[in-house]
Each structure stands twice: as C-alpha cells, then as structure tokens.
C-alpha cells in the first residue's frame, strides 16, 4: 500500500484528506506542524507528501526546499496547498521545487486525481 504523508495545521483538512485518500486505498500518516512533518518525511518513507504552506514552526516552502535539495528525498513528489493566488504560486513554486500546487479552496477530487497521477 502506498503511503501518503499529510502535513497541515488544520485538523479538519487533515481529517478530510485522510478519509478521502483512505477510501481510495492509500495509507496515510499525518503531521500537525512543519517540524513534525519534516521528521516524518525523513523517517517514515512516504511515497508522496501533501504539504500546507502556512504552518507554525517550519512553513511548507522551507520543508519543500529542504527535501528537494536533499538527494535522499528529492524524488518524493510534493503537492503544496496554498491560500495564495495562482500567479504568486508559480513564482514561488519555481524556487521551492514542489511538484504540484493546489489552491484553497480546493476540490477533493482535484487532490485525489493529483495523488493518483503520481502513485497510480
């Protein structure tokens, strides 16, 4: 079973994503802040990471950069969830190296499709 790490400080969002992805047959591990998220990303061998941008301690951009510039983790796909508009995203995205962007408010289907496109 493919493992998805969900990092978000919003418990409701985590619950929703976890429910939807588990019904689609993925295993989910979750983290409520950036620090914990980074730790799990490095230790729990996730196959994909869903990452919120605005988080306490370490924000999503920083985590993404730390992972993408590390040879050990750079191949894990990252889907970023942001509250910013698309134009701003594109600019920042090029720097942080995330693979996909989803803006809030997002559609559940959209997330599932994107996860599927990486994990099958």
């Amino acid at each position: 079973m493919k493992k998805v790490l969900i990092v978000d400080d919003e418990a409701d969002i985590i619950e929703i994503l976890q429910y939807v992805l588990e019904t689609q047959g993925y295993e989910c591990i979750t983290a409520f802040d950036g620090e914990e998220g980074l730790k799990l990303a490095r230790e729990a061998n996730p196959d994909l990471i869903i990452l919120d941008v605005m988080m306490p301690k370490i924000n999503g951009y920083k985590i993404s950069r730390l992972l993408k510039f590390d040879a050990k983790y750079k191949d894990i796909p990252i889907i970023m969830i942001t509250a910013r508009s698309q134009n701003e995203d594109k600019a920042i995205g090029e720097e942080t190296g995330a693979d996909e962007y989803i803006t809030k408010p997002f559609q559940v289907d959209e997330v599932v499709e994107k996860v599927k496109s990486y994990l099958g």
């Binding site: 969002i13 929703i16 429910y19 939807v20 509250a83 809030k104 997002f106 559940v108």
Partner: peptide, 13 residues
C-alpha cells in the same frame, strides 16, 4: 479560505 475548503470538501464527500 481554510474553513471554506473544509466545508466544501466535507460536502463533496
């Protein structure tokens, strides 16, 4: 946007 996302997703499900 965050609460809206939660509501929207819950409704979708």
């Amino acid at each position: 946007r965050t609460p809206l996302t939660s509501i929207n997703s819950a409704l979708d499900i």
